[in-house]
Design a protein around this nucleic acid. Structure first.
Length: 927
RNA sequence: GGGUUGGUGGUCUAGUCUGGUUAUGACACCUCCUUGACAUGGAGGAGGCCGGCAGUUCAAAUCUGCCCCAACCCA
């Protein structure tokens, strides 16, 4: 990665593409990465008139710049790039943009850590400025690393989620939804992080296992409707007792039913609360009697709302005890917990205390346990449109399909509207002021956006409701997802057209986007929120398709995590292996599957690069670079091109379905086995043949094109070295801007080709078994089988001095070795009789009747040898390839027709030389 | 606790939706071969009965049920 080393590698030989020597990925890859960016090979130029069907637009979720680049980024972006590169070649223009997510808590935290400051100590603008400075450094680093992955991103089309253009889009989004009546401001309990001092949404919480204590605390009964003087409740949070507003008992709890309707006195604090029955009480837990405090958990909120309980706030926004806590005021919740427990014990209220470990809900950013606080917050109404969002999900194509269920279940399980206000210093402000007198909401003018109410004036001089002329600016900012969910609109240039008085897109041809790629962990919030926002703004589903990538696991299939220390850093991998090899590995898993990082897969990629390089060198020595197409191609060459046609068709289908792993395997097998191992060996003996020269070059160009999405650097290097003129404009000459290959309609005798390859394979096996070199001469070979047109090829590549094609099957004696039944038609026809038929054949209790000739029983057929030459000369094998009329198998009292069985013969060759059988040919070797 | 997805030779994996009887390929392993690119190559071989149990069926890796294991999502 460091420049001096790269310089050293970069001697003159590496400056220009060439096929000299060995493939040197370090020099080649960095050179092309530089040139692709410098010469804007992947730049997208918008044309609003362009047919949306010829534009392939990708909406990539912008990564958080504060995080480091991990294997997940590398994998995800590589998959996106496969799609981008294929589509660019196959179907016109591609937009592959890039965004930096630097808006929100993550970058605030980063700034605080990096500069060792607290946001509270700064003015909002000042702190925001610092955030941007810090993020800029990280963004530059991110850009460099992303470019090192060789993704075909258009670096002219980037955005930052905090930049003014995006702030404008985000505030427009707020105002549009507000005007549609889909947003409201409400005072209600919300999830609160006391460390970040902000409300957060459900998705920002996670579970964490923490140690704690269970405390059994005695409450006195203050009324006299029961015999009891006291009862015991168990709690992990004794510091909440000053906030206790009621006590609950389950209606089925017979033991404690006497308490219902009575009044309890809270120890130490002395206030009295009602005891109420409610079936949400967990009878199994502790004494079955539970206190309700405002608020300890979500159940407290439910009770508070259901029973219209009073609000007692004992903990403030920074987790400090309030005046309600009396003597404990000013203590942190932790300190108060210990102090209260001590005092309870002193006063005899603490009946028991023991250690436990339980899961608590914490804020994912800072791991602080969350509180629940009543506050005034902004919400986006979503619960009333669940059905529409489900339908939007159904309209998208999901790759893989099964991921739709996650989306579906998430929506079905939604219980809260989307809380979008955050009490943070940095972020995109709400464009809202409130009348100081009547609290009427004043929203900014669209033309003025972006605004910051803290420094900008509201658009009115006096309140339209009450005429008051003082206003209070909203100082909350948007939840980062409120902005991150707008990326399709940001990329398409969505904006308010003041003249037309409507929303317009600068690049309407992009929307809806063709593809939305992402990890399966963010389906439930990022993808979902994006669908919500875009659907509400445009009435359209923002994506035609969504591709979900799996997670990269470690070598032992375990999730990579900091605590396990099993993280593999992309930097380390790229220091050891070519990017193209890493990409080859990334193409090995089916989209949506988690898969392990395995070094040996990277070695496989390296091997392929070497093979491609060497095969290119050999091709270059065998044929001129641009041979004429001959009038008539010879069978072997036509065969290769016909097979190539098939491969192109299959690969294209795989790419269109995002089946990169299948495309990769199909291409590798065809390239390595058929082209390199078979055809190139054959071509060595035919280099002066114009037909072979043409086929070689056609195949080679096509292979480079087919490999280009997977191996962009190596294919570009070879392409530029061999097939382009010096000094050509890279935008035109790059292999990545070429058209994807299409089948050319070559027709060939595929059966003959296949048979010829079988014969070659048989001869190789013969040599291998006799420990002969593969280029050892074979004196005389006779072949009986359909190999017309391929005789020379076989003779050349296997070094056969004399090759004879037999008119008639060689003299062999045959006997029935076995009978294969066609179960797929036999089963439905005979059902349970199949067992009997099987055992009949196994026991030899059957006979074959043919051509009205004498029935041949199993007994006679196994003993009576027959010479095939006298009766079946037409074909080397007669076992079903070419059924004769009237041949019937009698077994278990049934007659099976010709289509139901095949007879396998054991053959013994009695002539000169050695016989080798293949699927559809017989080969005889004589030394 | 609920849900989703997956469990195929030593490792990774195809096949499972559309049941059919020698289960795909790669890596590793063993044997052999220096041939006009590549020995970082080539040819060949051995190795699995498809997580477990039960069922449906003439027939199950493939369908059904239960169980075990793993990951993820939600409590």
């Amino acid at each position: 990665m460091d420049a001096p080393e790269r310089e050293a590698d970069n001697d003159a030989a590496h400056e220009e593409p060439s096929l000299e020597g060995e493939y040197e990925p370090e020099a080649v890859e960095s050179r092309w990465q530089r040139r692709w960016v410098d010469e804007e090979v992947y730049a997208y130029e918008s044309d609003p008139e362009r047919d949306p069907n010829t534009v392939y637009a990708i909406d990539t979720p912008p990564p958080t710049v504060s995080g480091s680049l991990h294997m997940g980024h590398l994998y995800g972006h590589t998959l996106q790039d496969f799609a981008a590169r294929f589509q660019r070649m196959a179907d016109g223009e591609v937009l592959f943009p890039f965004g930096y997510d630097d808006n929100g808590i993550a970058s605030e935290r980063l700034t605080e850590q990096e500069l060792d400051i607290r946001h509270q100590d700064y003015e909002r603008r000042e702190f925001q400025e610092l955030c941007r400075e810090v993020c800029q450094e990280y963004e530059a680093e991110f850009t460099e690393k992303m470019q090192g992955l060789g993704c075909s991103i258009d670096w002219n089309n980037t955005y930052k989620t905090i930049e003014p253009r995006v702030q404008r889009v985000s505030q427009l989004s707020f105002i549009d939804l507000y005007e549609q009546g889909r947003e409201y401001r409400k005072k209600a309990p919300a999830i609160w992080c006391p460390d970040c001092e902000t409300a957060i949404s459900q998705v920002e919480m996670e579970d964490d296992e923490r140690g704690s204590h269970f405390n059994d605390i005695a409450f006195e009964v203050a009324s006299d409707g029961t015999d009891r003087d006291e009862f015991v409740i168990s709690t992990t949070r004794p510091e909440l007792i000053p906030a206790c507003v009621s006590v609950f008992v389950h209606p089925d709890d017979d033991e404690n039913q006497d308490l219902v309707g009575e009044t309890a006195r809270i120890p130490i604090f002395g206030h009295e609360v009602p005891i109420i029955a409610d079936d949400r009480v967990d009878m199994e837990k502790g004494s079955g009697i539970v206190m309700c405090c405002t608020f300890g958990d979500q159940k407290d909120i439910e009770w508070y709302q259901a029973h219209d309980l009073p609000l007692r706030v004992a903990i403030d926004e920074s987790a400090t005890m309030t005046d309600l806590a009396g003597d404990y005021e000013g203590l942190s919740t932790e300190e108060a917990r210990e102090a209260i427990v001590e005092d309870l014990e002193d006063e005899g209220y603490l009946r028991d205390r023991w250690e436990i470990s339980h899961t608590v809900q914490v804020h994912e950013r800072c791991e602080t346990p969350v509180e629940f606080r009543v506050s005034k917050q902004w919400y986006v109404e979503i619960l009333d449109h669940k059905e529409e969002y489900l339908e939007a999900g159904r309209e998208m194509d999901w790759y893989p399909e099964k991921m739709f269920t996650r989306y579906k279940h998430w929506i079905e399980g939604l219980e809260w509207d989307w809380l979008i206000s955050r009490q943070r210093d940095s972020g995109i402000p709400f464009p809202v002021w409130y009348c100081a007198d009547c609290d009427t909401e004043i929203v900014a003018e669209k033309a003025e956006l972006p605004v910051d109410p803290l420094s900008d004036e509201p658009p009115v001089d006096s309140c339209p409701e009450c005429g008051h002329d003082e206003f209070v600016p909203e100082d909350d900012v948007f939840d980062t997802w409120a902005t991150s969910s707008l990326t399709p609109l940001i990329n398409a240039g969505w904006d308010w057209d003041a003249d037309a008085e409507e929303f317009r897109m600068e690049k309407p041809e992009l929307y809806p986007f063709d593809l939305r790629p992402q990890g399966h962990d963010i389906i439930s919030f990022w993808l979902f929120h994006t669908v919500v926002k875009c659907y509400e703004h445009t009435g359209e589903v923002p994506f035609d398709a969504t591709m979900i990538n799996g997670h990269v696991l470690d070598e032992n299939r375990e999730k990579m995590s900091k605590s396990k220390g099993n993280i593999v850093a992309p930097d380390e991998v790229l220091a050891d292996y070519p990017v193209d090899a890493v990409r080859f590995w990334a193409a090995s898993a089916a989209v949506g599957d988690d898969f392990p990082y395995q070094e040996k897969d990277l070695r496989a990629g390296e091997k392929l690069l070497r093979k491609l390089w060497n095969a290119s060198k050999l091709t270059d020595t065998l044929a001129p670079r641009d041979p004429e197409e001959p009038e008539e191609l010879e069978p072997i060459d036509r065969w290769l091109l016909a097979e190539l046609d098939d491969a192109i068709a299959e690969l294209t289908a795989h790419f269109e379905e995002y089946e990169f792993a299948k495309a990769r395997d199909r291409l590798r097998t065809f390239f390595w086995n058929t082209f390199c191992d078979d055809y190139l060996e054959i071509a060595k003996g035919r280099e002066d043949n114009p037909s072979t020269q043409y086929a070689l070059r056609t195949a080679h160009r096509t292979f480079l094109e087919l490999w280009a999405p997977f191996l962009p650097h190596a294919t570009e290097e070879i392409w530029q070295a061999v097939y382009t003129d010096d000094g050509a404009d890279l935008e035109d000459s790059s292999i990545h801007t070429r058209d994807w290959p299409t089948p050319q309609g070559y027709e060939a005798d595929l059966e003959a080709g296949e048979t010829a390859m079988e014969v070659i394979s048989a001869l190789r096996r013969y040599k291998s078994e006799h420990q002969l070199p593969l280029n050892a001469d074979l004196e005389s070979v006779s072949v009986y089988g359909p190999i017309e047109g391929f005789e020379d090829a076989i003779q050349n590549v296997m070094h056969v001095r004399e090759l004879t094609v037999l008119e008639d099957e060689p003299e062999v004696t045959t006997e029935v070795a076995s009978i294969d039944l066609d179960y797929s038609t036999l089963g439905p026809k005979f059902g349970s009789k199949v067992g009997e038929i099987d055992s009949g054949i196994e026991n030899g209790e059957y006979e074959i009747v043919e051509d009205g000739a004498e029935p041949r029983s199993a007994d006679s057929s196994s003993s009576a040898e027959r010479s095939s030459a006298d009766s079946h000369a037409a074909k080397p094998r007669d076992d079903g390839d070419e059924p004769r009329e009237g041949r019937v198998l009698r077994v278990a009292g049934e007659e099976l027709g010709e289509d139901l069985f095949e007879v396998e013969y054991e053959r013994t060759y009695s002539g000169e030389g050695e016989m080798i059988e293949t699927e559809s040919a017989v080969v005889i070797l004589e030394d």
